[in-house]
Nucleic acid binder design. Structure first.
Lengths: 166, 166
DNA sequence: GATCAAGTTGAATTTCATTTTCAAGATGCC
DNA sequence: GGCATCTTGAAAATGAAATTCAACTTGATC
């Protein structure tokens, strides 16, 4: 299940990883929590991947680095990362919560293939303008929006045709 | 939890209810299922409300008309209504699936208050155009999209201020 | 660098909406 | 009316998310 990401940076530099870690450590201090090796490992693993990860998928990746880190810790750390703005939840309407990097990324949206689950990201500043406009009109103080497009990707359409003729 | 709907029709006429019922009956016949009193009662109850209903909420309303109709039947009938285009699922990302009328309604979107859960509908044809445009660009055959705005409504902002000063 | 209150961890459990099961009861084609 | 097929709804199963709790770290303080 490919989930293409359009990156501003092709790879995350050491510098960015260090900065992200500092953001997490600062957040932990601010809310009176403690730094731990597990949390750092989970953050680093999260930053190293380019996909939209479910808790389960990230847990599997984390286990390759340290098999003693449990699902629960990954689950809780993802919540922490979302709290301090390093990650954000994306819902692709398949009943599974996914997270993606948020640090230093441009605002973007997703188009998801309903056959294979792959997704592409796209940029569309008009949508943020709409958020502002609609919020003003109905006197809402808007905080965020979701915009997702669903359809069938080129690959799946080709597959469908060939299986239909078989 | 108010969920305002912007209607093309202020109330659903008898005529519309009959038409909706015919659509359901036709669909049942098409897929080899049977007409039942329960299904008709559930459809009518659904059409009579103007909100975005969860299965549980609709079940409660249905029970007022016929206490013997169970949750499972409401659940299954909502799926049927969605199948034949009379209802569609809307996800407000609070973990509960909701349904709204689809028959004879203009395409619209929702803005949801994250404090009280109320919602307003708005129209924004630009969004459908974006769906087409992005689909072309990345070679997806698009089928649908979701667009939701989250924020805090005027009422809740007032409440927050007054409770803060208390 | 020892102490210890406070936070962390992860296996197991709980929760909760959703979905499925199954036996008893309708439905509708003949 | 007969009978295969579908429907019904209580109960059970499912599965992702959230919580519990006892053993284990962490880090502020001395």
């Amino acid at each position: 299940m490919l989930q293409n990401r359009i990156d501003d940076q092709p790879t995350l530099s050491r510098q960015m990883i260090r900065e992200a870690q500092e953001i997490l450590h600062r957040h932990l201090k601010d809310v009176g929590l403690k730094q731990t090796g597990q949390r750092d490992t989970i953050l680093r693993t999260f930053l190293e991947t380019r996909d939209h990860l479910s808790t389960d998928e990230l847990h599997r990746l984390v286990q390759k680095k340290d098999a003693r880190i449990g699902y629960t810790t990954v689950y809780r750390t993802l919540k922490l990362l979302a709290e301090c703005g390093l990650a954000s939840e994306v819902a692709f309407h398949d009943g599974i919560a996914r997270y993606e990097h948020q640090y230093n990324r441009r605002s973007h949206h997703h188009m998801v293939c309903t056959e294979c689950g792959s997704s592409v990201e796209f940029f569309s500043p008009e949508v943020s303008e709409l958020e502002q406009e609609i919020g003003r009109k109905y006197h809402y103080l808007t905080t965020r929006h979701t915009f997702q497009i669903y359809g069938v990707c080129e690959d799946c359409r080709k597959k469908d045709h060939s299986s239909r003729s078989a």
